[in-house]
Every structure is written in structure tokens, then in C-alpha cells.
Amino acid sequence: MTSHAAAAEGHAHEHHYTTTGLDNRKVAIWSFIGSECMLFASLISTYLIYKGRSVVGPLPHETWTDPSTGAVFKPILNIPITSASTFVLLMSSLAMVLALAAVENKDKPLPANAGWWDRQLASSKLWLWCTCILGATFLGFQAFEFTSFVHEGLTLRRNLFGSSFFTLTGFHGAHVTVGVIWLGSLLAIDYKRGLRPSDTLMVDIAALYWHFVDVVWIAIFTLVYLIK
């Protein structure tokens, strides 16, 4: 795909001859994503295996009464909040593709009849900001979710559900955090020297990582939150 324009200019080291004609970094990031599939498959399997095996509550979808104290623990997952954060992450992926398109098309002049929206679409800074902010918002939702769970008595140590839930979603959150830092660095470069079409590949590999993290959340949202 990338960068028909990129061949025209840019840094010398981006023009290495390769067997497939593809950039090394892009081959590497796809290999990395393949590896990440196995990482998240292991985490999700463990969550699914331990579903329904906790000996004490709180539980994800069921009410649990402590037999010794009589304390009642309501189902802990908060579907409305998580639906909102899922939507936020989906929208961040939209912003990410628009950022990539903006970088790729930087050298194409806007048509004479270009409107306000066309000018916005051409702004890589705007869409990188949007992606970062949406990603950070997702993390905010997760921080809120984690703290409220702890208040309701669910910790890493409390039961199998707590251990496997916090580890799975925590690993995903850590990936989002890395993504936000990565995109933030791209934004810094954009402010420092401006991202050019020759930088498309650099943005593209960050975007692939970002979308993959989104895709993992699509699986987690269904398997952890919605299926009872």
C-alpha cells in the first residue's frame, strides 16, 4: 500500500532494496502482531477457564452472598460504562486512520472547492490529537472501573475472577498506554518538524499496533463483559 509519494523524497535509509519490496519495519510489526495474538489468546483462555470457579465473590454477572457475614455482592461488571469506553476506543481507530491518510496525502493540494471539513481532514495533528485523547479517555474509564471494583471488594488477590480479570484487562490497558505514548511521540515529531508523506510508514506501523489493540478489545468486550 504505502507511499507512492514516499519514493519521491525523504531519508536515504528508507529506500533500502528489499526482496519483497516491503519495508522491514512493516514486516516486523506484522510478525509482532502475530505474536501478540498468542499472548492475548493465552490471557483470554485463562480468563475463560477460570470463569465460574471463584470460591468467593464479587462475581462478574452473578450476585454473591457471603455465607459467614451475609454481605451481598452485586454483579460487578458495569456494562453501560464499558460500552461507552468501547465506543471511545472504536472512535480512536477512526481518528487513527484519518491521521494516517492526512500524513500520506500531505503533499496533495486541496481542491479549489475544499470546504472546512476537507481542511480538517488534511490535518495530521488534529487526528493524532484525537487518537491520543480518545485513547487516554479509554484509560480513564479503565482507571475508574478498576478503582470502583476495588471499592466494591474486588482486588487482584480476592478471587480467581479478580486475578484473571485484572490481569487480562490490565495487559490490554498497558498496551493502550504504550500506544498513547507512541502516538504522542509521533505528535511531538509532527510539531517539531512536520510529518511528511515520507513518514507514512512510521505512522502506519503505529496505526497497525493501535488497531490491533482495538481488535483485542473487541474480543474482550464480548467474551468478558457481554457473555454471561
Partner: peptide
């Protein structure tokens, strides 16, 4: 959803 994101967003 998974397939759509992979096919279009990850092009």
C-alpha cells in the same frame, strides 16, 4: 467487527 477493523482500518 474484528474482521472489519482488520480488513479496513488495518487495510
Amino acid at each position: 467487527k474484528f474482521a472489519i477493523v482488520v480488513m479496513f482500518y488495518m487495510h
